[in-house]
Structures are given as structure tokens and as C-alpha cells.
Write a protein that binds this DNA or RNA. Structure first.
Length: 508
RNA sequence: GGUCCGUUCGUCUAGUCAGGUCAGGACGCCAGGUUUUCAUCCUGGUAACAGGGGUUCGAAUCCCCUACGGACUACCA
């Protein structure tokens, strides 16, 4: 093989937010490029003016940035093959379409929507297995194949709108070897003469995609498998132009959370978890869809999780750094069947990543959450809190719920615990413990634990009962990390105040 | 309807190309241990080759059929 540089592209259209399937496609392109020291290009396919959604392009760029899968060429980056936005390349495509027409590989068609509809209806009624605009039917339609050159010219001059269609060869098997799916074969009889150039002066995906991939010297087309059926048309296009075709790798689709069909942009939040990398506000309806970023996911965990949806390294390792992912990645280990993902497993990935970051780092992020709640605390204090609650959390955003009692006294006390544990005499014991605490000069987890346990034993009290009530006083519930660690962190004064508060509130 | 593709524990999957370990791992779930509690953590367990035919000494693996699922079938990408 030749040693040409690997060049891949991610080519979304800005019709809304990028969903996680799109992010995964971008990721696989990115990993493949990095692995092979190639280029990863971002091209924006905005040839459909009707579906353009303001803010979508920016969203795509920002999402990729957050994920750390940034293109080294294309929209939002630099590059020598620009412009990278198809609307800005508009002038380019027509001549390619016309070249195809003049060489007899495409033709001009004048059929109206009604005429097309009528043709399909007629074929349906005749019991025809497919209703394509193809070698068989095109002779019955209004196009430059059935009309004389003069008529065609007259219509064009009269301003009649027309499209340019690909002229497929009749009854030919187009075979290609998909990197993921293997050999796939289509007979042109079941394909249709795809529109390459629309009457609004814009190319369709099929033309623009092939022209741009060629011009941008793309070597591997890695895209979702919704494209396999149109790949033969693309291959024919490469052939007609006399261009070298790239390798195709069609990846399995991500499935809807509820199990029916491929994941779509409209599935946001339906499954109880985000389908978008970042929060998205629909500019028309102002409806907000949640994002992984805002849900507290680390981009690295998100990417790691996404990489494993449809691909695996063949080893038992599951936690991969970006560098490891790049090294391990290969197209031939992409699976063939669609994947639905498990939000539970996604959380598990994030938990793993959370445990890997330092308490100091986590404390910094937790600090800014606290700031928003207008709670001020020393960073060292926050770090000590984090060291106790981090392992219990999946997300930094869980920290507040897990450790709010480190920053404010309990607002209420769990009734069930009161009923079960706060029996006769407990209040008195609590008061005595408060006195003991007062007398401790070296107030620490160890000294308080020793003192309390000695007290319980000397009075022959029930360990579980007293300890749980003490916990209830501190936390307001029967959960949380080691009780004496909590007491030591909040300090003597706060501990005393909480004991008195609990005794006062609960009364028994 | 037509075409193309797919199908291994509930989920993500290894194993399929080069047939031959009680089909392996992870998440979840269950149990036990640790913990004064809850969670984490540790240990163990649960659970799958879509079905039917072949080929073969032997099939998750190769072939055929069926079923099911998905994609595409737009002047959308």
C-alpha cells in the first residue's frame, strides 16, 4: 500500500444538537486519526437551508471541545482545504454536477413533486416491488434523456426549475468492502437515480460529500450505518469522476433508550438520562434538554464510556485514558450490531474517574458548587470533607447531598431513626457525651471515639443505640462516613451545639 | 412492500475469520464479609449462544431456511 497520510472527517449537519451517537462517530474518527498520525477534519454539511438551526454549529464545536475530541482541521480550526462549511463551497459543486451531465453520467430532470408522486403511485398500483427513479422509469419522466436538447434548453431558459440526477448503470452489481461490515453488494436495479443537485442551487449530501471528501483528500469515511444503502451511489460517483474512492467503515447505530429504532435528537431525556453531551435549549420552543456535562460527567469518563459502545479492545481492561484509547483503537474491533447503553454503567465509569482524581482537585470543584449556594468554607476544610465522601459519590454534583451536614446543622431528624433508637434515657446520655466532649482538649476522631466508647461501656449502654443517636444528632440521618471523623471535622463547638439542638428538638 | 445489515447473560460485550477449555469479563441484581449506620470496598453467586435443519468424530463458530430486530427506500442529512 502507499504511505499516504490518513485523513478522516466528521461531517455533521447543523440541524440541532449533536447526540451521543454523533459524538461517538466523531470519537471513532478522532481515535483512528490519532492512532495513525493522521488528520481529523470537521466539516459542516449545511446544504439544507430549510433545516438549519441557529446555534447548532456552535453547539457542535463546543461539544467536541468539551469532549476533548477537537479537530486539527476544519470549521473552528485552520486548514488548507477550506472553506469547511459546505454553504461556503456552494459555487464549487455545480461544475461537478454539470461535468457529470456532459459526460453522460447524470441528467437534468424537470419532474415536479406531483409528477414524481404520480409515478410512484402508478408503480405501486402495478405491483412493482420498488418505486425508484431508475433506468426503467426514467424513460417515462420529464428529463434530458427523454426530451430533446432544444426542449431542455427552452425549459431552462424559461426559468423552469430542475434538478440533476445521477444516471445509474442498469443491472450492475456494485460491490464494496466495508471495513466493519465486510463485503456488501447492491444491484443498481434497486437503487435510484439520486438527486445530486437541487433546484435551489445547492448540492445534496451525496454530491457534496463525495466532492468534498475527494477535494479534502479523505482516506477513510467512518460514518453511521444509516449510510450503507447510499454508499453504492457514492462509489459510482467516484468512478464517474475518475477519483480514488476512500475506504468505508460503517458503524452500528446507537439505539433508542426504549429499544425501538435508532437514537435520534428527539429522544432527549426520554430514557431518564441525557442523550446530548451538553445542555441544549431549543431556540424555537425554549425546551431544555439536559447534557452529560451538566449532569456532572467528566469528559474523560464520558468518552471512555462512549468508546465502549460498539467497540472494545478485546482485553479485560475497561478504564482507558485518552492515550490508551488511541493506542488500542482499531476499526476492525468495531462491532456489527447496534448498541443501547446502560445509564447505570455510565455512572459506574464516572465513579471510577472520580476516585482517580485527588481530593484537592475535587475540593476545588466542590468549592465552586458551594459558592453558588452561598456557603463559604475554607478549602482545606472542603478537602477534608471530600476525602470522606468522595468514594461514596459518582459525581462531584453528588457531594452536596452526601455531605451537606458538614456545612450546616441538620434541618430535621429522620423519624424512623428516632423511633427505633431514641429511647428513654438517650437524651440524658447525649447530654453527658456533650460534657465529655467539652472536657476533651485534643479534639480528634481518635480521642472522641475513645471517650464515647469508654462512656458507653462504663454505663453499660447499648453501643448501637447511643452511636446511632449521636450520628442522628450530627447528620440528621443514619447514614454517612465514620461518625467520629464527622465529629472531628465539624469541631467541638459545632458538635456540642448539634447535640443540644437534637436533644431539644427530639425530647424524650 | 423492496433492498441491505444484524441476532451470545437484563445491558455492554469476549470468543466466530483459521470448528475442539463446564461460553470469559464488566455493569446490574442476589448473598456473605468489612462498617456502630448507609454507601464504598472485598469475596462468592445468578444469568446467554433466536429457532430449525444440515456438514463434521465434534458447531456459538461453516452452510441453508425461518423468526425477530434495525437501517435505507425525500429536491434531509
Amino acid at each position: 500500500m502507499d504511505s499516504e497520510k490518513i485523513r478522516v472527517r466528521f461531517a455533521p449537519s447543523p440541524t440541532g444538537p449533536l447526540h451521543i451517537g454523533g459524538v461517538r462517530t466523531a470519537l471513532y474518527n478522532y481515535l483512528f486519526a490519532k492512532k495513525n498520525k493522521g488528520d481529523f477534519i470537521l466539516r459542516i454539511e449545511d446544504t439544507d437551508q430549510n433545516r438549519y438551526v441557529p446555534g447548532a454549529e456552535e453547539y457542535i464545536i463546543n461539544s467536541l471541545k468539551w469532549c476533548g475530541i477537537e479537530p486539527n482541521e476544519g470549521v473552528g480550526a485552520s486548514g488548507e482545504f477550506g472553506p469547511y462549511r459546505q454553504s461556503e463551497r456552494k459555487s464549487l459543486y455545480k461544475k461537478y454536477a454539470e461535468q457529470l451531465v456532459s459526460e453522460g453520467n447524470a441528467y437534468i430532470a424537470f419532474d415536479t413533486a406531483e409528477e414524481l408522486e404520480a409515478m410512484r403511485e402508478r408503480l405501486k398500483n402495478e405491483g412493482s416491488s420498488n418505486q425508484q427513479y431508475n433506468a426503467e422509469t426514467r424513460v417515462t419522466m420529464k428529463n434530458s434523456l427523454t426530451l430533446s436538447a432544444e426542449e431542455v434548453e427552452k425549459k431552462i431558459n424559461a426559468g423552469e426549475s430542475y434538478v440533476i440526477r445521477l444516471k445509474l448503470p442498469d443491472n450492475e452489481n456494485v460491490v464494496f468492502n466495508d471495513v466493519v461490515l465486510g463485503e456488501i453488494s447492491f444491484n443498481t436495479k434497486v437503487l435510484d437515480d439520486k438527486i445530486l443537485f437541487k433546484s435551489d442551487g445547492m448540492p445534496t449530501y451525496h454530491l457534496a460529500n463525495v466532492v468534498d471528501d475527494h477535494l479534502m483528500q479523505i482516506t477513510h469515511v467512518i460514518r453511521g450505518s444509516e449510510w450503507v444503502n447510499s454508499t453504492p451511489s457514492h462509489i459510482l460517483l467516484y468512478r464517474f469522476f475518475g477519483w480514488k474512492q476512500p475506504l468505508f467503515a460503517h458503524m452500528p447505530l446507537l439505539l433508542k433508550p426504549d429499544g425501538k429504532g435508532k437514537l435520534s435528537k428527539r429522544d432527549g431525556d426520554k430514557g431518564g438520562f441525557p442523550v446530548f453531551p451538553m445542555e441544549w435549549t431549543n431556540p424555537e420552543t425554549s425546551e431544555i434538554s439536559s447534557g452529560y456535562k451538566e449532569s456532572g460527567y467528566f469528559p474523560k469518563a464520558f468518552i471512555n464510556m462512549l468508546a465502549f459502545l460498539g467497540w472494545n479492545p478485546g482485553t479485560e481492561q475497561e478504564i482507558f485514558s485518552e492515550e490508551e484509547l488511541i493506542q488500542a483503537f482499531s476499526l476492525d474491533r468495531i462491532g456489527k450490531s447496534g448498541a443501547r447503553f446502560d445509564p447505570e454503567k455510565a455512572r459506574w465509569f464516572n465513579h471510577q474517574y472520580l476516585q482517580m482524581i485527588s481530593d484537592e482537585e475535587a475540593a476545588k470543584e466542590f468549592g465552586s458548587i458551594l459558592e453558588k449556594k452561598e456557603i463559604t468554607a475554607d478549602i482545606n476544610y472542603i478537602t477534608r470533607v471530600v476525602s470522606l465522601i468522595k468514594e461514596r459519590a459518582n459525581f462531584i454534583t453528588d457531594f452536596w447531598e452526601l455531605g451537606c451536614y458538614f456545612f450546616e446543622p441538620p434541618k430535621s431528624y429522620d423519624e424512623k431513626v428516632i423511633k427505633k433508637r431514641w429511647k428513654e434515657g438517650v437524651s440524658d446520655s447525649m447530654k453527658e457525651i456533650a460534657k465529655i466532649f467539652e472536657s476533651i482538649t485534643e479534639f480528634s476522631s481518635e480521642t472522641t471515639e475513645l471517650a464515647v466508647k469508654e462512656f458507653i461501656q462504663s454505663k453499660n449502654l447499648n453501643m448501637g443505640q447511643i452511636l446511632n443517636c449521636l450520628r442522628l444528632s450530627m447528620v440528621g440521618a443514619a447514614s454517612g462516613p465514620n461518625l467520629f471523623d464527622i465529629i472531628a471535622i465539624i469541631g467541638k463547638d459545632e458538635a456540642l451545639s448539634r447535640i443540644y439542638n437534637a436533644v431539644e428538638t427530639i425530647k424524650k
